[in-house]
Design a protein around this nucleic acid. Sequence first.
DNA 1: ATTATTTTGTGATATGCATCACATTGTCTA
DNA 2: TAGACAATGTGATGCATATCACAAAATAAT
Lengths: 225, 225
Amino acid sequence: MQTDCKTCPFKTKATSMLCDCSLDALTNNHLELKLKKGDSIIKQGMYSTNVVFLRTGLAKIHLAGPYTEQIVKMVNAPSYLGLPTTFGSKINQYSVTAVSDVEVCFIDLEVFQTILDDNKEFTREIIQEFCKNELESFRRCANRTQKLIRGNMADALLEFANNIFKSDTYTLPLSQAELANLIDTSRESVSRVLTEFDKDGIIQMTGKQIEILKKESLKLISQNG
Amino acid sequence: MQTDCKTCPFKTKATSMLCDCSLDALTNNHLELKLKKGDSIIKQGMYSTNVVFLRTGLAKIHLAGPYTEQIVKMVNAPSYLGLPTTFGSKINQYSVTAVSDVEVCFIDLEVFQTILDDNKEFTREIIQEFCKNELESFRRCANRTQKLIRGNMADALLEFANNIFKSDTYTLPLSQAELANLIDTSRESVSRVLTEFDKDGIIQMTGKQIEILKKESLKLISQNG
DNA sequence: ATTATTTTGTGATATGCATCACATTGTCTA
DNA sequence: TAGACAATGTGATGCATATCACAAAATAAT
C-alpha cells in the first residue's frame, strides 16, 4: 500500500522539486487509497488536518451555496487538493468528490508544513499555484455571473476538451444536474442548450458521449451570447 | 520619502514576523507613494514586477469581465496587493484602484521573493492569507450568483459596516454604478433597492451617508430574498 | 455664477431563465 | 426479467431584473 514517493511517477511540478529527505518523509507519512467514482475525498463541514494528493483520476470541487450546490471547478491528476481549506480553516469549507475512480494520498498537514519549510523551490511552486488559482477564480466568477447560459455551456464543453480530456471527443463526466451546478443554471436549461447545440451541428451527442464538431462556433458562443 | 520599515507602524501580521535583516532589505528597496482617490495602483493588462503594500487607505480590486467591469472586493490597509497577479502572471490580470487617498509602498518582486525564502513564519502567514482569500472567493462567487439583488446589497452594506469601516454609520466609498459592479447588477437596481431599504427604515440615507438602523433586518434579507 | 458633466431617481417595456409538470428513457437491483 | 429509481426531454407559465428613456439633482469646470 505504501508506494515510495521517490519513484512514484505521478508528480506535479512542485513535487519534482523536493529533496530526497522530504520525499522520504512523505513516503513514511502518507496514506494511499483507491476510491471509486462518487466517493467523497474531502467533505464540507468536517474537521480535517490532511492535505490530499490526487494521484490519478478526476475530481470536482464543490460547496453549498446559499441555495444550491455549486461546483467550483474540476481537477485532474496530478494535483494537490484541499490546500486552501486545510490551511485556511480547521473545518473544511468545501467538498471534493471523485468523478472517476481515483487514487489519492492523504498527507498530514504538519508533515506538509515541514516540507514547505524545508523546500524553497517547492514553496515557490505552491505559491505560484495559489496565485494562478486565485486569478482563475476571479475570471471564472466574472464569466459565470455575466455570461448567458449558452456562453457558459460552451465554456464548460471547451474546458473539458482542452484542459480535462485533451480531446474533442469525450464522455461527459457529470450528469446534467451537475453541469447545471457548474454553470449556475437549472438542469432543464442544460438539457435544452445541449440539444440545441446538437441540432445546430456544433456538437454530436450520443448519450453522454460528446464530439465537438465546430470548435470555432463554440468559441464564438463563449464570447458572445 | 524612505520610511524605515523597522519602525513603520503599519504592519500586517505577516510583516511583524520579519527578521531585522529582511526589514532592512525592505527599507532600502521600496518606493513610497501617496496617491489620491481614483488613482490607479495596479492596472490590468500592464506588465509588472512589483508587489504593493497598502499602508493606509482603501482600495478596490476589479477586473474587466466579458461584458462589464466587476469589482472583486474592497481591501483596506494594512494589506498586500497584487500578490496573485504579480506571482501568477507577468501581465496584470486585474486592476487595483484607490477608493480613498492612500499611501502605498511598491516592492520589487525579487526582493519580496527573497524575503519569502528567508522567513518561514512570514511565508506561512502569506500562504494562510492566500488560503483564506481563496475560500472567501468561493463563498463570494456562490453568493453573487445565487442571491437576489436585495440579498447582495444587504451583504455589501454589512461588509462595509463590519469589515471596512467598523461602524454602522459610514459614507459609501463607491458610486451606485460601482456598487452595481460589486454586486453584479445594474446601476438602476442599486438605486431602487437603496431607496427601498431607506423607505422601509432599514437604513437611513443622506446623500452617500449611510446609517444602518435595523442590522437584524439586513441580516435576514442577506439570508433570504 | 454659469455651463458642463457626472450621478441619481423612477417609470415602462422586454427578455432570459427558473420553475412546475409530466412524459420518456436509461440503469441498477432483487 | 420485472420493478424501482435516477436521469433526461420538452412544453407552459411567471418573475426578477436588465434595458431604455428621461428628469432631477449634485458635482466639477470655466
